[in-house]
Amino acid sequence: MNWALFPQFFVTGLLNGGPIALVALGLVLIFKSSKIFNFAQGHILMLGTFTAWWLLTQAALPTWAGIGLALVVVMLMGFAIERVALRPLVGQPLLSIILMTLALSQVMQGGAILLFTAQQRRFPQLFPLEPYKLPEITIGETTVRIILKQNLVWSFVIAMVAVVLFALFFQYTRMGLAMRATAEDHQLARSIGLRVNHIFGLAWAISGVVATVGGILLASLSGLGLELSIIALKAFPAVLLGGLESIPGAIIGGLAIGAIEALVQGLPKDSTIRSMWPIAPYIVLVIALIVRPEGLFGLKRIERI
């Protein structure tokens, strides 16, 4: 282990966790309101990011307009998914709904290839490349240097702002209250006059937007391609680690997964262990499932017959 590198990898990992946390936040939003675990999240954000790429490069819109328009498209997509695919399944077992999201992901995968082809694209730079350098700290013999890429810092900041906004939204707005009520009990929510279907649609729309922001940040960092959807597969361990119902849990889980990945990738001397970094989140996932299935901040459900 090379401890002088620890702070650099740890901080980079935390910042890498920013986009993961955003995607995880989207998953939690949907789960909180409708108890659906969305396997199509990665493909929604991939399509959203491709739309943003198309608007920015092919249609040559200014940055704010392109990204704004792409987010509107994703929002409409969220409403459409709820209306076309999920409303007919109300009352169906969990398996049907999980499979529906998997089927949606397949359709979107094909659609993305059809609309944008399978080529690797360069996403326009949103932030300057010049990294921030923190002052060097010398402890004993080791000198600690930390270099931060601006994209990472900004995606981290955006993730944090999103969390605070959503916490406020759920706590203080009527819509947030309605969403929390729907999550608690669909029948009850209906009986006090909430339109549960609209709330589901809204949850899908918001979650798509949040995830797409994460996707755009990630694409501006490492390019755009079909494999962007894989980020969502890293958000699953993050969500389960943090707890399925908890918004802060999703953020902490996302950051933790980012940090764990970076540390496994950078620190150990043995190259086999270093090559474990892509599966480190899933090992964490299995451990979390066995040790604490409800996650760090999730709710423990007590079941009755």
Binding site: M100, A103, Q106
Partner: peptide, 11 residues
């Protein structure tokens, strides 16, 4: 087409 046809059939 492969994923689209399969996904649509499943839906």
């Amino acid at each position: 087409l492969g994923p689209i046809v399969f996904g649509t059939a499943l839906m």
